[in-house]
Write a protein that binds this DNA or RNA. Structure first.
Lengths: 155, 155
DNA sequence: GAGAGATAGTTTCATATGTAACTAATTTTG
DNA sequence: CAAAATTAGTTACATATGAAACTATCTCTC
């Protein structure tokens, strides 16, 4: 008689997508405590501030490309940051549809408070790995990212 | 005169929490297409099915522990799966508060359709890495997970 | 064995998020 | 250069999510 079929077993705890998701959440949570609990910022607001600090005068669309956020998420994060006075919208002279976004002095202050905390928390995390391991992890992540999203560069 | 302070720069694209998040999303998306687009399941429903297939008669609380979902998310995923007829609730004889959850025959069929697809998609992804690299990645992820969540085992 | 807590799971409510539709400005095309 | 198609960004709506309150059951303590 035919045997009962034996599908390949799938153990969630060793399944890469699951492990990546759980790890990513655990890591993000650590960092989120710094900007969320202390300064009331969402992940998206934090990301918007980071790229705006890096590239003052950036447009919303460009923020979306650099942070992997869609335009609605960018729009909302920007609106929230303007509301609390951390971001300023300057109309672009050459294209009336877009604005040039910059951090306000208040936004810059907050940002400069968060950055060293975020960096040191990241350092604490990766200090579990040797320098060589850190480099290897980065390399493997790039390979995976390319396999997962061949159509576009993720970073 | 004092120089303008130079905070450590933070480039989002090299910041581990950001990179992990983007990578995790890209990977999850690939797999999600299999169960979401084809079968209308959410990530949580898929996770609940996976652990229930692995451990028939499991309780909602235990599902939460194994999948890192909170009890509300488990409750909702279970309710949805019961609604579409993939999961069955059996009252526990020794504790009237909990139920023993099992996949229905229909649920098992769907699950057994998804598993090989998920596994082969995962295989396709990690095939970008050599066996040695895969093992190394797993090792590094465990180290990071421990650093990020020392209080509890993530997997 | 009668509270006082603890636990399993659900419901409620407020907020977050994604999709699609929309407005306004710009670029392209014939 | 006028109409058509694109692009930047916002708004509206429907659904998803998280926190807290809630119900029912169980366990512990005296």
């Amino acid at each position: 008689m035919p045997e009962k079929s034996h599908p390949a077993p799938l153990r969630l705890s060793t399944f890469l997508p699951f492990r990546l998701s759980v790890l990513s959440n655990a890591v993000s949570q650590r960092i989120a405590e710094l900007y969320d609990r202390e300064f009331g910022l969402s992940v998206w607001q934090w990301r918007v501030m980071a790229v705006t600090a890096d590239t003052p005068g950036i447009s919303a669309t460009e923020i979306g490309q650099r942070t992997q956020m869609d335009k609605v998420a960018v729009s909302r994060a920007v609106a929230g940051l303007i509301e609390v006075g951390y971001l300023e919208r300057r109309p672009s002279t050459d294209d009336a549809r877009r604005s040039n976004l910059v951090l306000t002095p208040a936004g810059t202050r907050i940002y400069e408070l968060i950055v060293p905390l975020a960096i040191s928390e990241e350092a604490r995390l990766v200090s579990a790995l040797s320098d060589k391991e850190q480099a290897e992890l980065a390399r493997l992540m790039v390979k995976l990212a390319t396999a997962a999203s061949p159509e576009r560069d993720l970073w």
